[in-house]
Structures are given as structure tokens and as C-alpha cells.
């Protein structure tokens, strides 16, 4: 089977490739959004913890 025949998909190329393309975009997007959400939450937690530690030092400067 040659490449152009494969890409042609028996005349159904726009339908087949748009389905696979959209699925790929959504799947990658879901993974990316999940990573980003976790990263933001981790950063927030770290800042909060640092603030808490500084406040503890300020209250108790010994």
C-alpha cells in the first residue's frame, strides 16, 4: 500500500482524519490541563507553607 492511497482513505479522508485529529487534540489537551492544574495547586501549597513558616518565626522570634 502506498502513502497517498493510505492518506486518501478511499475518498473518506476528510471524515476519517478529522475524527482522529480531533481525538488526538482532546486527549493531549486533557493531559496538559491535568498537569497544569496539579502544578498550580502545588505552587499554591508551597507559597502557603512558606508564609505559615515565616509567620511562626515572626510570632516567636527567639
Amino acid at each position: 500500500m502506498n502513502l497517498s492511497e493510505f492518506l486518501h482513505m478511499g475518498g473518506y479522508a476528510p471524515y476519517v482524519w478529522s475524527c482522529y485529529g480531533l481525538t488526538a487534540i482532546v486527549l493531549v489537551g486533557m493531559e496538559w490541563a491535568g498537569r497544569r492544574q496539579l502544578q498550580l495547586a502545588q505552587e499554591k501549597a508551597r507559597r502557603r507553607a512558606q508564609m505559615g513558616a515565616q509567620m511562626a518565626v515572626a510570632e516567636n522570634p527567639s
Partner: peptide, 18 residues
């Protein structure tokens, strides 16, 4: 991510984040 959101005021999270 959801756990971090819900546990933001707990000691374990502060410890592990530091």
C-alpha cells in the same frame, strides 16, 4: 490537585510542601 485544594490548611501538606 483536588486533594491539595481540600487539605490546604493541614500540617502534612505544609510539611511536605516545605
Amino acid at each position: 490537585g483536588e486533594i491539595l485544594l481540600r487539605e490546604r490548611n493541614t500540617a502534612w501538606l505544609a510539611e511536605s510542601s516545605l
